[in-house]
Structures are given as structure tokens and as C-alpha cells.
Amino acid sequence: MIEVTGLVKTYGTKRAVDGISFKVNRGEILGFLGPNGAGKSTTMKMLTGFIRPDAGTATVGGIDVTVDPVAVKRQLGYLPESAPAYPEMTVEEFLCFIAEVRGFCNATAQRERVEHVLGLTHLNSVRNQTIETLSKGYKQRVGFAQALIHNPPALILDEPTDGLDPNQKNEVRTLIKNMAAEKAVILSTHILEEVDAICTRVIIIARGRVVADETPAALRARQPGARLDEIFRTLTA
């Protein structure tokens, strides 16, 4: 479903992403790990067509994102880092706007989608609140809801559980797990337990390069008996 080959992005003299390649099929949940500044968000931005790669290709459903960006964006649900949203809109207005741009122009279809994601992400209690007045966790949920609204075949989530309380973290993980059967999901995270909890595969990147690409079980098998964070430290050091 998602295929990335040799992606490169350079900012000034700094190689943020240095030849990253991987593949994600439907039914897979790929955990994207790496220290701060490793290039996770930059890779996702190239994959979603927000920034142009200096080299390499990214395809979604066989379509190259630089060739037909709109077709790729139609298939993607994307939660950018720190979940940006228009602060002066209410949650409901915002989701209706996204639904409309996503092609749900007919009022009943739009209503139906918005109600559906409001329920999924437990936003009903704040639906009429403006986004600028929401707490961080609720803002994060609005970003998640927005990414799900068109039931996309591919989901790209940049730190989806950042700022959520333990209950919500669990809830979001369960949600992602339940949806994953017919979707390709990439999620970045700094929480190593999350990998064990939901990911079917892990990619660890450091300084713009892939240093591990395997199942969580294989990752553990690298150093039997060691904790995940120890393995992470050895790989990214």
C-alpha cells in the first residue's frame, strides 16, 4: 500500500533524512521510532506530499506522491505532529470543514461522518467548544478525528498518543488496532510499550537512516532479556 524508496531531504547542510526505504502493506501497523531529530516527521511530511523530497520516491496505492499529489492525499489520513487545527473554529465546524473538503458535500453524508468520528474519539462533550479553548489531549483527539473522517485506506499518524491520558492512550491504541485489518498504518511514537501493544512491525531510524526494520519479537530477540529501551539505546547510539 505504502512504498518508500531512497527518500532524502537536506535542510541547508543538514541531512534530515538520508535514504530511507520501507514498505507497508494493508493490515500492518508500522511503529516509527527514533530519537528526537532523527527524521521521523520529515519522512512523514514527504510521504504525505507536504514537502518535496530531494531524492527518492514515495508511493501510496501505486501512485507517486510527486506525480499526482491530490490522488495520494485522497487516500491518506494524516495527523501532523502537534495536531494543528484552526483555533477559532468549533470542533464540529472544523470537522464539517474537513469532511466537505474530503468530498462529503451532501449534508446527511457529512453529518453522518462527523457524528461517527465524534463518537469514536469521544469528542461529543466539547463539540461546540472552539479549538483554541481545548486542552492538549482534546486537541490531539480532534486531529485524530480529522484524520479518520474519510475512512482512508492508509493512515499516517505523527505521535498520535502524545498528550493523551492513560485511558485515552489505551482507547486510541485499541481504535487503531481494530481499524488496522483493512488499512496500512504508520505511527511514530516515543513510547516503547506502544510498539509491543499494537505494532506488527518496527522501524527505528537514527540520524536519517534506518537502523532496524523488523517485528517487535525480532527486535526483542536482538538482546534476549534486555529491556526495549536498552535495545533502543544500543541501536541509536
Binding site: T48, F50, V70, K73, L76, P80, S82, P84
Partner: peptide
């Protein structure tokens, strides 16, 4: 400034 441009340009619009 608000970062919403990332949201806007990852929606299916030209």
C-alpha cells in the same frame, strides 16, 4: 505560524 498549512496542503486540494 499556526502550522495549519500542513493540514491544508495534505488535504486533497491543489
Amino acid at each position: 505560524r499556526a502550522g495549519t498549512i500542513e493540514l491544508l496542503f495534505t488535504l486533497p486540494i491543489t
